[in-house]
Simulated scan of single mutants.
Amino acid sequence: MNPVITNLGVMLVMMQVSRRLDMEDEFTVKCIRIAYVVSNLIIFGLYMYTRTIINKKRDLTTLKYMEQPSAFAADSEGKLITTTVHQYDLDQVNAAMKSALQGVGMMAFMHLYMKYTNPLIMQSIMPLKSAVEQKIVQIHLFNKPSTGDLKRPFKAPSMFGDLAGGAATDKKTVEAAETAGKGGIKEE
């Protein structure tokens, strides 16, 4: 099912649930906090287990692609990236963990400093759903083949849809970048 539609459905349901809860009751707030912490522990456990699986597989197949420049970058040319599938997958898991940590930091600020409790309800479900839907988790934890949408390098989701493009992996583009003297960034 489309993640956007399921996210919308989950948000609507969780908004209705949060309206029915008494946010003034200390026991209710404590239960919401516990649910949020448990959810984040599950998320980090999921990412750590995925990292363990990646390290066990240790796929050293070479992966070359042209990284598309940021829309806000001054230079209009992408960089040639040469790495291994193992390193690429580890980088993807690390980026997902960093994103999850930033979410925890933001929620800590909103809940502890600004005294908002309602977002904790939503954030105990949505990041968990997002973690299970991560492409790297789908490949390694659920053993889905890395073809189609799960083909490396992953297309970055864009608010502009397919207009933003993604990493170029076709042989012609990669060879052109190699022969143009662009060099490449070799990640190990």
Score class of each variant (00 low, 15 high):
107 M>A: 08
140 H>I: 05
149 D>E: 15
71 A>W: 09
162 D>V: 08
120 L>E: 11
183 G>E: 07
101 L>N: 01
67 E>I: 01
12 L>M: 13
25 D>T: 01
120 L>Y: 12
76 S>A: 11
51 R>S: 10
134 Q>Y: 12
139 I>H: 04
24 E>D: 13
66 M>N: 03
60 L>C: 04
167 A>C: 14
6 T>W: 01
75 D>R: 13
85 V>Q: 08
14 M>P: 00
156 A>L: 10
141 L>P: 00
102 Q>E: 10
33 R>D: 01
104 V>T: 07
42 I>V: 15
148 G>V: 09
140 H>W: 05
181 G>S: 04
5 I>K: 13
129 K>D: 08
50 T>F: 00
18 S>N: 09
155 K>H: 08
6 T>M: 07
154 F>W: 09
105 G>V: 11
164 A>T: 10
6 T>V: 14
65 Y>C: 01
181 G>T: 07
30 K>C: 03
118 N>G: 00
117 T>A: 10
119 P>Y: 11
81 I>P: 00
137 V>A: 09
85 V>H: 08
50 T>Y: 02
7 N>D: 10
166 G>H: 09
14 M>F: 12
77 E>Q: 14
38 V>Y: 05
90 L>Y: 01
48 M>C: 08
149 D>V: 14
9 G>C: 12
135 K>I: 04
51 R>V: 04
45 G>E: 01
26 E>S: 13
93 V>Y: 02
153 P>G: 08
108 A>K: 04
179 T>G: 00
37 V>Y: 06
1 M>Q: 06
73 A>S: 15
52 T>F: 08
133 E>S: 11
137 V>C: 05
136 I>R: 02
180 A>F: 02
9 G>A: 14
76 S>T: 15
85 V>Y: 08
62 T>E: 15
27 F>N: 12
90 L>R: 11
170 D>V: 03
15 M>I: 11
82 T>S: 06
135 K>W: 10
64 K>V: 03
103 G>W: 08
92 Q>G: 01
3 P>E: 11
186 K>P: 00
49 Y>W: 13
162 D>N: 14
132 V>M: 12
82 T>E: 07
162 D>H: 10
64 K>M: 08
70 S>E: 06
45 G>F: 04
35 A>N: 10
5 I>T: 14
130 S>K: 13
